[in-house]
Structures are given as C-alpha cells and as structure tokens.
Amino acid sequence: MEWIGIEPNQAMHEFLFEKANEYNINARLLECTSENISLPDNSVDYVISTEVLCSVVDLKQSLKEIFRVLMPNGKFLFLEHVIDKNNFGRRLVQKTVPFTPWKWYSDGCNPGRDIGSHINQIGFAKVEYSNYMQEGKGIINLINKPHIYGYAIK
C-alpha cells in the first residue's frame, strides 16, 4: 500500500513516517502545496483530508486540485471543522481570530470557513456529509466545535 501526503508542517514529517512504517505503509511526502499538487490528472483513488482545509491558503484552488488528481469515481474523504451557522457568538469569534496571533499558533487556521459549501461547488458527482459538534474542553475546542465529515465522488 502506498500513501502520498502533503504536509507543510515540517515538525509532523518524522511522526508521519514513523506511523506509516508501524503499519507497513510505503509513505512519500510531496514537496508542494494543496493549491498545486505535483501529481498527474486522474492519478489517485482517494484523497483524505482531516482538519487541514482550514489552513490552506486558497480553499477553492485546493479543492480544484483534489478534484483534478482524483481518478474517475475516485473518493474525497474529509473531516473538517467549519463555521458555526447557528451560534452568532461563536461565528463572530471564528471570523475574528484569523486576524489575531491565533494564526501563528494554529498553522494558519481559519475557523470561519464554510468548507461544506465549497466542496459542493467544485463539481463532484456526489457529495454527502453530516454536521456534528466536537466534544472536548478548552478554548480551541470551543471555537472549533462545529465539524463536518463525509465524502465526495468524482
């Protein structure tokens, strides 16, 4: 089995390779960004995104690239924290914190993104996701409580 990853946080590289080795997975990290994935069109079966789309520079371009590299009928699996559409106070904080030191402590996280709507606009043949509120304590969890998980098929 081969896993190809994009991870801009250098501090995570050793951990990723250790985990891949632990599960006998051949791992490779690409030196690129999600906005310009250095893979051919229609070349991967799955793309998995876990709480990273909040931190990409250009969300729309990243999703276009995910769509581009997926094979026909390929699947995009995602779990992401998203903007709170129901709680005005949390939504206000989510929209404000990217303009504070938050962005340096959180690898550029922008918690005020409506990621599900963006995924729906890319052109996938099918998109399904569910909303839930992440459990846990602390200020970061309080801000990033709303999540979605689901899949999109090319």
Results as ranks from 00 to 15, higher is better:
18 E>D: 11
83 I>C: 01
140 I>R: 12
52 V>P: 00
47 V>A: 06
30 L>K: 09
104 W>C: 08
146 P>E: 05
68 R>E: 08
7 E>F: 11
43 S>Y: 05
79 L>V: 12
1 M>G: 10
86 N>S: 01
42 N>F: 14
7 E>D: 12
15 F>S: 14
90 R>P: 12
84 D>S: 11
57 V>N: 15
87 N>P: 00
11 A>Y: 14
24 N>D: 12
61 Q>H: 00
145 K>F: 10
66 I>F: 13
74 G>L: 11
82 V>M: 07
57 V>P: 04
38 S>G: 02
103 K>M: 02
75 K>F: 04
30 L>V: 15
112 G>C: 07
97 V>T: 06
64 K>T: 03
131 N>D: 15
130 S>C: 03
64 K>H: 14
93 V>T: 14
34 S>H: 00
69 V>W: 06
92 L>M: 11
133 M>R: 13
153 I>T: 15
67 F>S: 14
150 G>R: 02
96 T>A: 13
107 D>F: 11
26 N>I: 01
32 C>F: 02
99 F>P: 01
8 P>M: 03
148 I>H: 04
78 F>M: 06
85 K>I: 05
128 E>P: 00
74 G>S: 15
82 V>L: 05
124 F>I: 04
10 Q>C: 10
18 E>V: 09
115 I>C: 08
78 F>S: 08
60 K>P: 00
29 L>C: 09
38 S>P: 00
153 I>E: 13
124 F>G: 02
146 P>N: 09
107 D>A: 15
95 K>G: 00
153 I>P: 08
115 I>F: 04
125 A>R: 07
148 I>N: 07
140 I>E: 06
50 T>P: 00
28 R>F: 07
8 P>L: 03
93 V>N: 01
85 K>D: 08
62 S>G: 06
20 A>M: 07
34 S>P: 03
115 I>P: 06
144 N>Y: 00
20 A>R: 10
112 G>Q: 03
117 S>H: 03
101 P>Y: 07
68 R>G: 09
40 P>C: 06
13 H>C: 03
27 A>F: 07
150 G>W: 06
98 P>E: 06
115 I>M: 11
147 H>A: 03
52 V>S: 07
21 N>F: 12
42 N>G: 09
1 M>I: 07
39 L>C: 11
22 E>W: 05
77 L>F: 14
103 K>N: 03
3 W>H: 08
61 Q>G: 00
140 I>F: 09
70 L>M: 08
93 V>C: 04
153 I>H: 05
3 W>N: 05
135 E>D: 14
20 A>I: 04
15 F>I: 15
59 L>V: 09
28 R>L: 12
130 S>E: 13
110 N>D: 12
91 R>M: 10
28 R>V: 04
81 H>T: 08
47 V>E: 03
14 E>N: 13
18 E>K: 15
